[in-house]
Design a protein around this nucleic acid. Structure first.
Length: 493
RNA sequence: CGGGAUGUAGUUCAGUCCGGUUAGAAUACCUGGUUUGGGACCAGGGGGUCGAAGGUUCGAAUCCUUUCAUCCCGACCA
């Protein structure tokens, strides 16, 4: 089944084709009949559910509550915040009618022209507008603040070039929308979530990220500041994995959301919004996969350990069963998810390849040899190494191994990024390093026009102005003007 | 919406330039048997209006016209 996958090597021109095949063959998702939409299959969804559960807990720990706002937004709502419209109005799906009828010639159903809506409805591309029109009624006094709400939802953006997980017309995400009494409090919230996202990607998804802020031209429509985390894919491109926006009072003013402060004065509230989407799945796939398929970090793997018996007769299987079932109980006690695959319609070699393709972190094999020696074969997906270990005490070995894999794949991704990150000082070097597929740290004069020119000439954009790096005086690689800090350039998805 | 390519079995494709038996392969699927420590083997079987419509021809998967769809590269984007 995955044989063909081996014919494709990544990091070449066919990287995106390789990515597509991997997504389909690892059983994560497939295309739907509607262009740009995606069917997330059970295995892919199980990973997404893990992501959801972990993030959801973290949001709740930090005082947020879940709620749900409607899918459909009156068109007029989108006209209220000028910059927001500029950023989103173009690529939305629009509902214009509410009824179908049988066509006169009997060829099927048609839209009933009589059922035209007076005001069209927009399928949400993001929910700021509907949420802020609602918050207007919820917020009267400083005692109503802050409002810390998150929603898990689907949104729709009519993208011109969809890619499974990375950019689909409909995608699943969480979007947080908070309202605060003071500017400072809102800024703290935006940064808090930014850090929460970064930590989640590094600790759970094993993806190293660069934290930074977006330049004016890359900023979310309607935001004063956009905090971003950027990861690297194995073809050296950047992938924006999550954003947290400090919205200032823009939406409060557009939707007239005011509160009375302690001094009995009316004030506009301060806002943030933030989100991560199923794109994280794409980040996961692109960060860790190798030529054998997916590599899942243990903390997100729906199945952490798969056990495959190798046997000839039913009697052998019974003996293996006796030992394996005991082991499974012990592993489950330690909170490890285990799958015991003793189906006899596939040969062991086939199963090995299949579970590697699906990225299961650890595989245990017990065969006749092991029965005799009282051992188990232990295989780790990240390094593809096998070792034969004593059966006794294996339940203590596995948790440590899972941890080591979690760290190992993070380190591997980290080293990969380090190897593909360059500090450059001339435009010529810049072009070479970008062309090769790298992250490039270079000086920039802060001018939007310079940024646009560089993009036009090299297809590289400023992914972010990194927060964790020291400032350093230098000259802009393009204009030669003074610069105080290096920014991160890369081609991106 | 521009530039390029492709539509043939569930899937990946060959056949198209140069029209000619009953349209092929691999793989997947079904049946039986032998196998089982890295994607097994043997035997048998099912599966196609060759993307669609029209035209040329004694004859079209193949040539012509139209149309639809998909993929890749741009513009757009989490």
């Amino acid at each position: 089944m995955a044989k063909e996958l081996k014919n494709l090597t990544k990091r070449e021109d066919n990287y995106s084709q390789w990515y597509n095949e991997l997504v389909v063959k690892a059983d994560l998702a497939e295309q739907s009949p509607v262009r740009g939409c995606m069917v997330i299959k059970p295995y892919g969804y199980a990973i997404w559910e893990k992501i959801q559960r972990i993030l959801d807990d973290k949001f709740k720990e930090t005082g947020h509550h879940n709620a749900y706002f409607p899918l459909l937004i009156p068109k007029s709502f989108l006209s209220k915040e000028a910059e927001h419209v500029e950023g989103f109005a173009k690529e939305c799906a629009v509902v214009s009618h509410y009824r179908l009828k049988n066509s006169d010639d009997g060829s099927g159903v048609v839209v009933d022209p009589a059922a035209k809506l007076e005001e069209e409805l927009i399928i949400r591309p993001t929910s700021e507008t509907i949420i802020w029109s609602t918050y207007k009624n919820w917020i009267k006094s400083y005692r109503d603040l802050p409002i810390l709400i998150n929603q898990w939802a689907n949104v729709m953006r009519w993208e011109m070039r969809p890619r499974l997980f990375l950019r689909t017309a409909e995608f699943l995400w969480q979007e947080g929308h908070t309202a605060h009494a003071t500017k400072n409090e809102a800024e703290i919230e935006a940064k808090k979530i930014h850090n929460l996202y970064a930590e989640f990607l590094e600790k759970y998804m094993a993806i190293p990220v660069i934290k930074g802020v977006k330049t004016a031209s890359e900023r979310f429509a309607g935001a004063l500041e956009t905090y971003t985390i950027e990861s690297m894919t194995q073809d050296g491109k950047a992938l924006q994995c999550g954003t947290s926006h400090f919205l200032g009072q823009n939406f409060a003013k557009a939707f007239d959301v005011k509160y009375i402060n302690k001094e009995n004065k009316l004030e506009y509230v301060w806002a943030t919004s933030w989100g991560v989407s199923t794109r994280l799945m794409g980040a996961l796939i692109m960060a860790h996969s190798d030529d054998n398929g997916l590599v899942l970090p243990p903390k997100l793997a729906p199945i952490q350990v798969v056990i495959v018996p190798v046997y000839k007769t039913e009697i052998d299987l019974e003996k293996i069963d006796a030992k394996i079932l005991k082991l499974i109980d012990k592993l489950k006690e330690k909170g490890i998810s285990v799958k015991y695959d003793k189906t006899d319609n596939k040969r062991p070699g086939f199963k090995f390849a299949e579970y590697e393709l699906k990225g299961i972190p650890v595989r245990l094999v017990m065969g006749l040899r092991d029965l005799e020696n009282n051992t188990v074969e232990l295989f780790r997906r990240d390094t593809l190494q096998k070792e034969t270990v004593p059966y006794e005490g294996i339940e203590n070995r596995v948790p440590a191994l899972l941890e080591s894999i979690q760290e190992g794949i993070f380190q591997k991704a980290f080293d990969y990024r380090a190897k593909h990150t360059f500090v450059v000082d001339t435009y010529n070097d810049f072009k070479i390093k970008i062309e090769e597929g790298n992250f490039v740290l270079a000086h920039w004069d802060g001018d939007t026009e310079t940024e646009a020119k560089i993009k036009e000439e090299t297809k590289a954009t400023i992914r972010c102005i990194p927060l964790d790096y020291k400032s350093e005086l230098g000259k802009c690689i393009y204009s030669g003007k003074n610069s105080e800090k290096r920014v991160l350039f890369a081609r991106s998805y």
